[in-house]
Amino acid sequence: MKEMICIVCPKGCRLKVDENNNYNVTGNACPRGAEYGKNETRNPVRVLTTTVKIGGAKYRRCPVRTEHAVPKGSLMEIMQQLNSVCLISPVAIGDIALENAADTGINVIVTKDM
C-alpha cells in the first residue's frame, strides 16, 4: 500500500494506492484522483514550467511549459535542452519553444504573449 497526496488540484486528497490489487485507489474525491494515484505509482508524470531566453521583449525571460505532463525522470534533461533555446519577440501563447522535448514526443510551448 502506497500513500500519497494527490496533486491534481489544490484540494490535496490523501490517497492510498494498493499495488497488489490492480493499483486500486482509495481516499480520492474525484475520478481524476484515482487516475493520478494509478499513474503516480506506475509512471509518475509532471507538467514542467520554466522560462527561456527572449530577445526584444519587455523582460529577458519568456515563461514556457510542456504541453502535457512528461515523465518525472525527464525534467532535468528538458531543462538542459531549454538552456540553448532563445526566442525573439513577438511570440504568442501556444507557440512552440522546443519540439519533442527529451524525446518524450511532447512540445514545450510559450505561456505568455511577449
Binding site: I5, P10, R14, R46
Partner: peptide, 8 residues
C-alpha cells in the same frame, strides 16, 4: 502551503 505543493 497547499498539500499539493509539499508533494510536487
Amino acid at each position: 502551503g497547499l498539500a499539493r505543493n509539499i508533494a510536487q
